[in-house]
Nucleic acid binder design. Structure first.
Lengths: 253, 253
DNA sequence: CGTACGTTTGATCTTTCTCAATAATGGTGG
DNA sequence: CCACCATTATTGAGAAAGATCAAACGTACG
C-alpha cells in the first residue's frame, strides 16, 4: 500500500503525534516535491528569507540557529529525518531564523500552496501539521527551562536524552546507541555553554558512567541514570508510541 | 459592526499577525464562551491536565511556567490580554506546562470543539490560529537565544523591549511607559537568573539611564538605547502593524 | 607526511550564585 | 490614623560555575 517514497519519514513523523488514515498517508506521500542535497554547513533557510516553498528533511541532520548582534550563535532546534524544516514558512512570510545542514542532507521542497491545499482538504493532515507546530513549541519550552535552570551536566544529559528518544522514534538508533555527528563547539551552541566547558562536562558524564562516546557516537549504558542526571521526562515530546521497556540496550560501544 | 465583547482582544491579537475579514471577526466574537476570574497566583492550566476547553486571556497578565525536578522554576512565556492560553490544548491531549495568573485575570473558556469547528469552517481563522502558534514558537526561539547567549543586562533589557512592543500592540502602554506587575523574583524566573542578580542588574540599567522604574511600572527614556542594550530586533514577533515613529514617549514617570 | 579541524588540558578571570542581613512597601486590624 | 506583619527590594561578602586565554594533542584526509 504505502510505497517507499522520500516523503515516508514525514508520514512517520506526523504519525508519532497524530492519527492518520491510510488515505491521508497516501496523500502526503503523493505530494509533488523537488529534492535537493545540501552539503554540511549549507544553509537551507536564511533569516529574513521570504520563502516560496516549505521543506522537510528526508535524510541527514540539520539545526535551526540564531545569532546575537555580537555574533555569538545559539542553536534553537535540532532537526532529524522527517522533521518539517519550514512549518513556519507555510504561513509566515519572513523567516526569523536560519536552518543549516549538520551533515550532508536531502531536503524535499514542497510548494506552500500544495501543502496548504492538502491541509485544507484533509483535516486530519491539517491537524497533524498543527500538532507538529505545537510539539515544536513544547520542545522549545523545555529548552528554555533547560537553558534557564539546569547546570551544565544536566543540560547536556537532557539534550542527549531528548536525542535518544527522538532518534528512536525515527528508527535511527541501534542497540549500541546512536550516531549524532555534532562537534563539541556545536553542542556548546545547543547548550549555551563554551566548547571548553562542554568538553569537560562530557568527560565528567562519561567518567560517571552515564554515557559512552566513540567519536560522534553516543551510547547510554544506564538509561535511568542519564534520565535522572538530565532531569528528563519525555512528556514534552508528546509522542504517542508506547514506551518501550528498554530505551537503548545498555551495552558497550 | 463589531460590538464590544470580551473576545475583542482575541480579534485584535489575531489581526496583528494575519488578515481577517469582518465576517471572520464577527464569527470569532460570536463564539460561545464561559468567563471566569482567576486570582493572582491561581492556576489556569496544570501540567498533566487533559483539558476539555481552550482558553484565552481577556484581561490581566499570566505566564507559562515549568519546574525542574529539584523544584526551581522557569517562566517560559508571558501572556497578555488577547493571548491564547491554551492553543496547545486545542489539539494536544495533555498539557506540558502550567499557566498561572500574574494578576487577577479574566479568562474565557471556549469549548475545543467550537474553536476547532470555527477553524475548519473559516480557513482564515484556522490560519490565524496556526499563525498564532507559529509566532509563539518564534518567540520561544528568541528566548532560547536570550537565555543561552546573552548576559544578564542584555537579557533583562531584551525582555523589557519585548514587553514594550507586545503591550503596545494591545494598547496597553501609555506615553509614560507600561505597567507590568511582576516581582523581581518572577523576573528572575523569566531570565534564568537569581532575584538578587535581577535586582542589581535592573539597578544597573536604571543607573545607565536605559530604563526608569516606579514600583512595577517601567518607562523607557531612550528606546534605541535599550534596544541596543538588549540586542532587540522585533522581527521575531511577526507583527504586521507598521512601526510607529516613537515607541514610548521618552518622558519622566 | 603535512595541514586543518576538532579535542583535550591547564591556569586564570568574571559573572553570577549563595547566604545573610537590612530596609521598604503594602495591606490589615484596631 | 497607626502599629504590625508579610512580602518584596536592596545591599554586602564570599563562593562557585562557567568563561577566557593559550597551548598541546589527535585524527582524518588530501
Amino acid at each position: 500500500m504505502l510505497l517507499e517514497s522520500p516523503l515516508r519519514p514525514l508520514v512517520r513523523k506526523l504519525a508519532t503525534h497524530a492519527t492518520l488514515s491510510d488515505a491521508d498517508r497516501q496523500a502526503i506521500i503523493s505530494l509533488p516535491f523537488k529534492s535537493r542535497t545540501i552539503e554540511p554547513g549549507g544553509y537551507i533557510v536564511r533569516e529574513g528569507d521570504a520563502p516560496k516553498a516549505s521543506c522537510l528533511l528526508i535524510s541527514g541532520f540539520a539545526y535551526r540557529q540564531k545569532h546575537t548582534g555580537d555574533g555569538s550563535r545559539q542553536i534553537v532546534a535540532l532537526l532529524i529525518r522527517g522533521d518539517l524544516i519550514d512549518l513556519q514558512n507555510l504561513y509566515l512570510d519572513e523567516s526569523d531564523h536560519n536552518v543549516q545542514a549538520l551533515t550532508r542532507s536531502e531536503v524535499a521542497f514542497i510548494a506552500r500552496a500544495d501543502l496548504q491545499a492538502l491541509a485544507e482538504h484533509r483535516p486530519a493532515v491539517g491537524r497533524a501539521l498543527f500538532v507538529a507546530a505545537l510539539v515544536e513549541a513544547s520542545i522549545l519550552r523545555e529548552w528554555v527551562l533547560n537553558l534557564g535552570r539546569r547546570n551544565a551536566p544536566a543540560r547536556l544529559a537532557h539534550v542527549l536524552c531528548e536525542l535518544a528518544v527522538r532518534l528512536e522514534a525515527q528508527g535511527l538508533t541501534d542497540r549500541f546507541g546512536y550516531h549524532f555527528p555534532m562537534t563539541q563547539e556545536q553542542l556548546a551552541d545547543v547548550t549555551g555553554l563554551t566548547p571548553v566547558h562542554v568538553n569537560r562536562t562530557l568527560k565528567g558524564l562519561e567518567s560517571q558512567g552515564l554515557i559512552k562516546r566513540d567519536r560522534r557516537r553516543f551510547s547510554i549504558p544506564d538509561w535511568r541514570a542519564l534520565r535522572d542526571a538530565g532531569d528528563f521526562n519525555e512528556r514534552y515530546l508528546h509522542e504517542q508510541i508506547q514506551e518501550s521497556a528498554s530505551r537503548l540496550t545498555p551495552e558497550l560501544i
